[in-house]
Design a protein around this nucleic acid. Sequence first.
RNA 1: GUCCUUGUGGCGGAAUUGGUAUACGCGUAGCGUUCAGAACGCUAUCCCGCAAGGGUUGUGGGUUCGAGUCCCACCAAGGACACCA
Length: 815
Amino acid sequence: MRYSPQKIEKKWQKIWAKKNYQIWHASDLPKKKHLYLLDMFPYPSGEGLHVGHVEGYTASDILSRYYRMQGYEVLHPMGWDAFGLPAENYALKTKKPPQEIVPQNIKRFKEQMQSLGFSYDWQREINTTDPDYYKWTQWIFLQLFKKGLAYEEETYVNWCPSCKTVLADEEIEEGKCERCGTKVERRKLKQWVLKITAYAERLLQDLDLLDWPERVKTMQRNWIGKSEGVEIEFKIADTDKYLKVFTTRPDTLFGVTYLVLAPEHPLIPEITPSNTQNEIKRYLAESLQKSDFERQANLTEKTGVFTGAYALNPATKERIPIWVSDYVLMGYGTGAIMAVPAHDERDFSFAKEFHLPIKEVIAPEGKPHLEELEKPYSGEGILVNSGPFTGLDSQTAREKIALFVNAKKVVNYKLRDWIFSRQRYWGEPIPIIKCPRCGNVPLEEKDLPLKLPQIKKYEPTGNQESPLADITSWVKVTCPKCHGEALRETNTMPQWAGSSWYYLRYLDPKNKKFLVEKKKAQTWLPVDIYIGGVEHAVLHLLYARFWHKFLLDLGVVTTPEPFQKLINQGVILGEDGEKMSKSRGNVVNPDTIIQQYGADSLRMYEMFLGPLSFSKPWSSQGIIGIFRFLNRIWDLVTSEPQKKDGLKLTKEAQEKLKKELQELERLEQLTIKKVTEDIENIHFNTAISALMEYVNRLNDFPKEYLPKKYLKTLVLLLSPFAPHLAEELGKTYLHQRGLISQSKWPSYDKKLVEEKQFKLLIQVNGKLKATLEVNKGISKNLAQKSALPLVQKYLGKKKVKKVIFVPDRLINFVI
RNA sequence: GUCCUUGUGGCGGAAUUGGUAUACGCGUAGCGUUCAGAACGCUAUCCCGCAAGGGUUGUGGGUUCGAGUCCCACCAAGGACACCA
C-alpha cells in the first residue's frame, strides 16, 4: 500500500476527537509536573488560516506532544480574538451583523486547525466576543475605574472626516485613512484613558525576570523610554511667574540661549504681550490643526514664533527670548524646553533657522572652537564658557549645576497613557453610565455583562460617537446612584482589551463567579512558553503585562509576570522572497497543501525550513522533499522483509552484521539524544535532519536483519512532528497497543552514546593535516608520539616550538 | 537620524558554542528502471588543479597555538522607533 495522508489523517483526527478531544484535556489542578504552552490566539478573519499561523501553532503543538510523552500535564488551549475592525468593516459592506459573520469564521478556523492535527484542549475554547467572556473584560475595567486608573480626558485623536470616525494609529497609512484615503485630521475629543504610566517603572524593571528574546525586551524598554533628569525653573522677566523645563543635561545650562514652549502650553496666553498676540494665535491655530504625521513630516525644517516675552537664565541671569514651536511636545516633560543649540541637533537647526545665538559650553578636549560651530556636539566633554564651572567634566558638572540652581531630580517616561475608547460598534461596551448629576457612574458588578445590542446600522453617527448612540432604548437609563435620567457610555473598548487577559480565562473558562479561581491561577501561571509573531512585541505584550500587574495588585493572580518564556516565529515569505499578499499573488493556502501532501508534510516542512525565528521563503519544491521523506518512512516501516530462508551466513558475514548492528544501536541512541535536545531547545529543523540521517541509515541496512525496535524508535521520535503518520504506522504496522501520542518518549543510555575511541585531529599551526583513530583518555605524550610521524612531511626540518594538546580532541604542533 | 537583528554553495540552512566549514534538504548533471513519461533508486555536485596540494564563511584589521564563532572599523540587507529635550 502507498502512503496516502488523505486517508490516514482524517481517520486519526476522528479518533483524537473522541469525547471532545479528551486525550488532550488538562486537569484544572494537576498533581504531576505541568506545563502551560500558549499560542497567540488568532483574529478569525474571513481569509482563513495562513501558513504563518501554521508555523507558530505547529511549533507549540510539537512541544505539547513532546512534553506529554515526557510525562507532563500540558495545558494547550486555543481561542478567538474576535472583536475588532475587519468584522465591523465587513458588516458595513454586506449589512450582515458581525454576530453572524464571526461564528462562521471561527468554524472555518477551527476546522482548519483540526485538519492540521493540533492537539488543543478544546473544552477550554474561549471567544472574546462571548458575553460570558467579556463580562470579565468589563469587570477588569470597573476595577481600574475604581482604583482611579481609568479616567476620562480630552485628547487629540485622529479623525477621518469622510468615514466620520476616530482612527487608531494602526489604521493610518502615511497620514491618510487606510480605507478611503482621506487626509486624517486632528480633533480634540473626550476619551477613556488607562493609566499604564502608573506601572511604567515596574513594567521596565520586571523585564529582567523574563526569558524573552533580547530584541523584544529592548523594544519594550525603548517604548517605555525612561530618562532621568532634572526640572529647572526659569523666571519670566518682568513678572513673578516661573517656567519649568525638563532636561537631562543641566551641565549645558550656560549654553541656553532661548526657551521653547509647545503650542499647547497653558502659559502662552499669559506671557504673550499684546503686540505679538495675533501672530502667536495664527501659529497656534496652524500647528494645532496639523496631524501628527504632518507635524513630523519634515524633521529638519523647524517652524516657530517669538512670543515677545523673555526669561532669565538662572545661572547667568541673562535675558533670553521665549519662543513657541511645535517641535516641542506637550505630552513629554513639562511641555517646555531650554534650548542649547550648540549641543542639541534640534535646537541647533531651530537656532539656524531663526538666527538665534549659539553658545558653546562643552568641548571634547576643553578647548572651545574659535570659528562658528558647523554642527552641534551632544557628547560628553569639558565645560567651557560656564563661569565657575568651566573646566569641570560634563558629568560632574551635571550634578553641581543642578545643585547650584536648585533643580529637582525628575524621571520621565516616553510611555503615554493608553487611549481606551473607540467610536465603534464591534467591541466591548464600556460599563459606565454618564449621569448629568453624578458624573461617571460605574455599573454594578451584578449587572455585568453589559451586552452589546444588535443593531441595523453600523455607520458611525458622525457626531463623534459610536453607532450605539443611535439606539435610544439602550442608551437611555436611570442612574444607579440618583435614579434620575442618565445615558450610557457609547464608546467601546479597543481591540487589545480582550487579549490582555485571555490566558487567564483558559484556566477556568466556565467559572460563573469569577474570572479565574485563584488556586488555578497559582498552579498554572506564569505561562511557561508563549509563541507568536514579533508584531506584538510592544502593544499586546505590554498591555497584557500591565493588566497582569494590576490583577496582581488586586490579588487575582500571584505572579509578577504573565509570560515567562516568549518565542517569536519568523515570517514565511512568498516563493519570490517577498511578503505574502493577495496583490502579489504569492499566497500559499494551507488547505491546498494539505490536500496535495497532507498535514504531516505541511507541519514538518514548515519546521524543516529553518530556525523558527527566521524569516524564510516558501518553496514548493522543498515541501516535495519532505513528502518524499515521509514516503520513505512509510515504505521502510510497511514493507515486508523477505523471509530469511535456511541459508546460513558465513562467519565473516555474521561478524560484519554484528558490527553493523552495534553501530546502528549507537546511531539510534545518538538520534534519540539529538532529537530530544533539539526539541527542548526549539531547534526543530536540526531535529528533522537527525531523523533523516537515521532513516537513511535504516534504509541502507539489510531489511531482513533489521530489528523492529529501531522502527518503533523512529515512529516515536517522529510523532510530535508528523502525528498522523506516526499513529498509523504504530498501530497498523508495529502493532502498538495504545496511541503513539500517549506512549512514553524514548530515552537513551549515556554510556552507549559515549564512544571508546575518537578521531584525534592532528594540526600543524592550527591547520588540520591528518586524523588518527585512538582510544579515549590518551595521554599527551602518547598522542604526540603516534601523531608526529603522520605530519613529519609538513614539519620538515623546522623545530616544533610548542605542542597544544586538547584531551580527547586534537593535537597541534606549532612551528 | 537612533536602536536592534542578520550576512556561510545556485537556494533554505548545519557546524559539539573557540577545535574536521558546507551536515540535512532543495536544485542541477550523469546513470539505472521504463515502450515512453511520472515516480523511484544510484553516483556526483564550494572554488583552482590531471594530481599532489592549495584556497574559501560580506570587506579590512585585531586577539589566539587555532576564528564562521570573540573584539574594532567599514559595507550590505531586513526590522522597530522616530523632534521624547
